[in-house]
């Protein structure tokens, strides 16, 4: 269990201090909560609260760069942040929690009911990272989840502003953990679909993307059957719902989001 806390003054100090037995603390909603395994496993916590240069939202030539320590409420209140990202931030219903939770923290936590990752992934967000060698690098958000960047500090997130993106989140109540959060984006190349399924993980729905791109008029029944029989999807029965329920929810949500992107009424 963590017994030491380092209050990093700069991103460089935080990045250099990161070892295998240390964990970053951004807003605290994930690390400081009761039962957090991050705080249990780490020996040292590196607080980013006093780090300079990790806040601020800059808009430039169709892109918005958001400091990793910007809170969800900062996103909601900023004129520069695109509507689709505000919508995803508002999935966190509690304003007091939105005052704490940060965009960088939500990505780094990699939760299977993440609020922002599906939308940021479908939007093709780019992360700027800082390693312990203090070298900065930029990677696509999907790349971040392959495990090679665990010890690096996220310093900013860049997204395209004018992108067509829609999201849905299903939970028992606004405060509950969601069984499914799903986002779909569309450009001239086609549709992009990403999701977070509770206790399953962060998913990129390549087969669904292909199905919609190949046949934009595909029926809902075909999508439901496709997801029902998909062998690559490892959903299981748990307290959030049965395997069949989760597959059905993914299918009908994908269909609804695609229709929404095409401007049709759902």
């Amino acid at each position: 269990m963590a017994t030491k806390l380092l209050m990093a003054k700069s991103p460089e100090e935080a990045a250099v201090s990161k070892t295998a037995s240390a964990a970053f603390v951004a807003g605290g909603t994930e690390v400081n909560r009761l039962g957090s395994d991050i705080a249990e496993k780490a020996e040292t916590l590196i607080s980013l609260k006093k780090c300079s240069g990790l806040d601020g939202i800059e808009a430039d030539a169709g892109y918005v760069t958001i400091g990793a320590m910007c809170t969800f409420q900062d996103l909601v209140e900023s004129d520069k942040v695109p509507g689709w990202l505000k919508e995803a931030a508002l999935f966190m219903a509690s304003r007091t929690k939105r005052n704490m939770a940060t965009i960088g923290g939500n990505i780094a936590a990699r939760r299977s009911d993440s609020y922002l990752i599906p939308a940021l992934s479908a939007a093709g967000a780019v992360l700027e990272l800082l390693g312990s060698d203090t070298k900065a690098e930029r990677i696509g958000i999907v790349e971040y989840f392959d495990g090679a960047y665990d010890d690096k500090l996220i310093t900013s997130v860049t997204v395209e502003k004018d992108i067509r993106l829609v999201s849905k989140r299903y939970a028992n109540t606004a405060q509950s953990h969601a069984v499914l959060t799903m986002s779909a984006a569309m450009d001239e190349m086609g549709v992009y679909m990403n999701g977070a399924v509770k206790n399953v993980g962060l998913l990129h729905f390549c087969d669904l993307e292909k199905a919609f791109n190949d046949d934009p008029e595909i029926s809902e029944d075909k999508i439901i059957e496709m997801v029902r029989t998909c062998t690559g999807l490892e959903t299981a029965d748990d307290m959030f719902g049965s395997d069949a329920y989760k597959r059905y929810l993914i299918a009908v949500t994908a269909f609804d989001l695609f229709k929404q992107l095409k401007g049709k009424e759902v």
């Binding site: 605290g28 400081n32 909560r33 009761l34 005052n99 704490m100």
Partner: peptide, 23 residues
Amino acid sequence: EVGECGACTVIINGEGFNSCIYL
């Protein structure tokens, strides 16, 4: 103690925070 119920809310510099998950 996970920041969901709001019973621990305090005002810090004019804004509401869940003090249970605030160091």
